[in-house]
Simulated scan of single mutants.
Amino acid sequence: MSTHPIVEKFVQGKLPEPMAMALVGGSLPVPAKDLLNALAFAVLRETPYTQRALDFLATMPESMVAGVVTEPVDPPEILQLVLCHRKEPALLETALLNPSLTSEIVEASVLSLPGTVLEIVLNNQVLWLERPRILDLLEEHPEGEYVIKRRVNEFRFDILRLIPEDVKKQRLEIIDEVEAGRLDRAWSELPLPKEKSKEEADAEVESDEMAAERRLLAQKPPVDDEGNEITLTLTQRVMKLSTNQKIMLAIKGGKEERTLLIREANRLIQVNVIRNGRITEGEIAYIAQMRTVNEEVLRIISNSREWMKKYPITKALVMNPRTPLPVAMTHFKRLFDADMKLLIKDRNVPELLRREAKRLVEMKEKGKN
């Protein structure tokens, strides 16, 4: 489709100034597409008509502009004009999905976009693969939500393979340790480090009581459920891992890794330790008595029929002050008499639990008499 003669003369610089001012002010009878073409030329090239063109662009009905950017446009600078100087989300979405959009225009427009449409840019991998700088701009965007910035980071690692040298070095060291038999095989399958998600960050919140107990534990050398000390090298390696990597190691790691990771404040890490297919009943009994685990971990243990068939696990769960009261009340009747009497004297467990335990003991004694 040919350009309107008036717009053609304007672009060539041959249109008299009064007519040029009338054109960019919307006073001449030209089609909407040609008018936007003229406005794009006036604005993006910083001509003497820039401000008048911007003023008129702001008054153009959204429906009129949308009618143009719905179809392929030539030249595509019309899309840049809309992306940089209009704010309606539906209109911007239409422009961002236009088949004439180029990576150059996206790069020039990203910082002008509102945060509500940034995900459309992020999902257009064809464009940011041509110009990876688009990812940098998305990350720098003041209105970019955390999830956008986290996905930018993931794309850099997973698609562009932009891995920092220090990460490459650590990766090679881990592979060497695995091959030498000094680390569990699960270490070689760890993903590259990524930023924490909001859920992961929220899961790291712990009570003052748990924090105090964790600090006390940190002063002692870490040991597993059988009392064996864990090597300092492994402890240091686990401390360096990102939350994402710790979660993966919790799911697949060996006994020493599980023992270290169950001490983490992050609820997701603790829960995935429990879901590790290699975890033993001895470890479950050890975890069930820990006062630094999240309540969700104790609930998961209590919901497992297989685990709750084992008396040491039931006893540890009921005697643990961290266990939710409804869970402890459900299982305390299974305690042996000697353990029941210990429960009655334990000031750390809830008063209601001690009272019910005492009542049960008294009933048993009356029955014997």
Score class of each variant (00 low, 15 high):
residue 8 E to P: 01
residue 10 F to R: 04
residue 11 V to K: 14
residue 13 G to T: 01
residue 20 A to E: 01
residue 21 M to E: 12
residue 21 M to W: 10
residue 25 G to D: 11
residue 30 V to C: 02
residue 31 P to C: 05
residue 32 A to G: 00
residue 32 A to N: 06
residue 33 K to G: 13
residue 35 L to G: 01
residue 39 L to K: 09
residue 42 A to I: 00
residue 47 T to I: 06
residue 47 T to P: 01
residue 51 Q to I: 08
residue 52 R to T: 09
residue 61 P to C: 05
residue 61 P to F: 08
residue 62 E to T: 15
residue 63 S to H: 13
residue 69 V to G: 05
residue 69 V to W: 02
residue 69 V to H: 04
residue 70 T to A: 12
residue 70 T to R: 13
residue 75 P to A: 13
residue 75 P to D: 08
residue 78 I to C: 00
residue 81 L to D: 01
residue 83 L to I: 11
residue 84 C to K: 13
residue 85 H to Y: 15
residue 97 L to K: 14
residue 99 P to H: 12
residue 99 P to L: 10
residue 102 T to R: 10
residue 103 S to F: 04
residue 106 V to Y: 02
residue 107 E to R: 12
residue 108 A to S: 15
residue 115 G to C: 02
residue 117 V to C: 06
residue 118 L to P: 04
residue 123 N to K: 11
residue 134 I to W: 09
residue 136 D to T: 13
residue 137 L to C: 01
residue 138 L to A: 08
residue 139 E to W: 14
residue 142 P to A: 12
residue 149 K to H: 06
residue 150 R to K: 11
residue 156 R to P: 07
residue 157 F to V: 09
residue 164 P to D: 01
residue 175 I to L: 03
residue 181 G to C: 11
residue 184 D to H: 15
residue 185 R to W: 02
residue 185 R to A: 15
residue 190 L to H: 03
residue 190 L to R: 02
residue 197 S to T: 15
residue 199 E to T: 07
residue 208 D to V: 09
residue 209 E to S: 15
residue 209 E to T: 13
residue 210 M to P: 01
residue 215 R to F: 05
residue 215 R to S: 08
residue 215 R to E: 10
residue 216 L to A: 15
residue 217 L to Y: 05
residue 219 Q to F: 05
residue 227 G to K: 06
residue 227 G to D: 11
residue 227 G to V: 04
residue 228 N to W: 06
residue 233 T to Y: 02
residue 234 L to P: 06
residue 234 L to A: 03
residue 236 Q to R: 15
residue 244 N to F: 14
residue 246 K to S: 06
residue 246 K to I: 06
residue 246 K to L: 00
residue 249 L to R: 00
residue 251 I to S: 10
residue 253 G to H: 07
residue 254 G to Q: 09
residue 255 K to F: 09
residue 255 K to V: 13
residue 258 R to Q: 15
residue 258 R to N: 14
residue 259 T to H: 13
residue 264 E to C: 08
residue 270 Q to C: 03
residue 272 N to H: 12
residue 275 R to Y: 02
residue 277 G to T: 14
residue 279 I to A: 06
residue 279 I to R: 09
residue 280 T to S: 13
residue 282 G to A: 06
residue 287 I to Y: 09
residue 296 E to K: 13
residue 297 V to A: 15
residue 307 W to V: 02
residue 308 M to D: 10
residue 308 M to E: 09
residue 309 K to H: 12
residue 310 K to L: 11
residue 310 K to Y: 02
residue 311 Y to K: 07
residue 313 I to V: 12
residue 314 T to S: 05
residue 314 T to G: 03
residue 316 A to F: 00
residue 318 V to Y: 07
residue 323 T to P: 00
residue 325 L to K: 12
residue 325 L to S: 14
residue 332 F to E: 02
residue 334 R to W: 07
residue 342 L to W: 03
residue 342 L to Y: 07
residue 348 N to G: 09
residue 350 P to W: 00
residue 352 L to V: 11
residue 354 R to A: 08
residue 356 E to Q: 09
residue 357 A to R: 02
residue 361 V to H: 08
residue 363 M to P: 01
residue 363 M to Y: 09
residue 368 K to W: 08
